[in-house]
Design a protein around this nucleic acid. Structure first.
Lengths: 192, 192
DNA sequence: GTCATTCCATAGCGATCACTACACAAGGAG
DNA sequence: CTCCTTGTGTAGTGATCGCTATGGAATGAC
């Protein structure tokens, strides 16, 4: 019933898998590189995580959860402009963090389209709140704008993957903010 | 000296190879799918194109030449705003043309970084001309702006690959234009 | 201790990868 | 026709892919 205990840290092994998928993508990641990076033999990998596909799903879910944390925290900024600026800034920092592979797994991996849609939905949701709060014009095309911002984030990821510096990626984010509608002036007091 | 003549159209076979690399990328394209799509057996492929790497180089060079044609033609527009708008519009149309795979080979394939740098350079060059012509402010950060536009184009390609419609991709292009500096008023005629 | 259960390590499965050896076919030169 | 050159088609190379059969090691239950 109980059996021999596992000889490796499952979470640590999963983190190593995340790092692999993140750096070279699903297709270029092989079971051999995974077992090497995770410090685990193939049978142990399959016993603990199923197959390559399920391991990738679990890895991408872990990765995506962290991404969403960052976005949700940035979304708490009082105005839509500040929130979007913080999201793009955090994205730029994450994409060029020397401690992790460049770019973003969700924005790069072809098969993670649904996660990208979720990111876009989060962007739109924050823009919608900006319209409700009155710091964005009522006529703001929030869905179009969210699609644009997702595209910019993807471009930032690609720039980082091509070796772009943190400043290069940040410059993209800064420029993208110019495409937002001008903030609505709501009087002498800050709206929050 | 003369030998047996080739039994297939080299250009047509190359075009089929371009289509393969374009649709699924370098890594996912196998010799087997290439020979099938090109209507050629492996020895003929290797005799005519070298190996997979050289075939890809020739295919991407062919593809890139067409891309540059489109950009150079768009660059002839009188103002920088019109030229950039035309480039983004042409990009959007190319990325969602039903007759070709969605997205862009150059903007998608990791190993084509130098071609992406060339696209960015073309964008910067046209922006620089806009500054010289006086339809962009003298202080315009043309290099940063070119990096931003390349990122947007990459995002447009990704959107198309994710199944985005022509209108979705065009909306990204339209929104990106809002990030350009306002045109310099150069007299009684409206600059737009 | 014995047993059942679970994990680990070696070793290798069939399939597919990029690529090619070999024999033959199709042309020009003489 | 006989050569010579070059392309074609079959069939298969060693390497690597994702994945697993098998046997032994490590635990708890009794």
């Amino acid at each position: 019933m109980t059996g021999r205990p596992r000889s490796f840290d499952r979470d640590a092994a999963l983190a190593a898998a995340v790092e692999q998928f993140w750096r070279v993508g699903y297709d270029e990641t092989t079971i051999a590189t995974l077992t090497s990076a995770m410090g685990v033999t193939p049978p142990s990998l399959y016993a603990a995580f199923g197959d390559k596909e399920r391991l990738f799903q679990e890895a991408s879910r872990t990765y995506f959860a962290r991404t969403c944390e960052g976005m949700d925290e940035a979304a708490t900024r009082p105005t839509a402009h500040e929130a979007i600026a913080e999201m793009l800034d955090g994205t730029a920092r994450a994409h060029t963090d020397a401690a992790t592979p460049p770019g973003c797994l969700v924005l790069t991996e072809p098969r993670l389209g649904s996660q990208r849609a979720a990111v876009r939905e989060r962007l739109r949701s924050r823009l919608d709140r900006g319209v409700r709060d009155g710091d964005l014009p009522a006529a703001t095309p929030t869905d179009e704008l969210a699609g644009f911002l997702l595209a910019v984030m993807r471009g930032m990821s690609g720039c980082a993957r091509d070796g772009g510096s943190a400043e290069d990626v940040l410059a993209i984010a800064r420029t993208a903010l110019r495409a937002l509608p001008p903030p609505v002036d709501r009087g002498p007091l800050p709206p929050d």
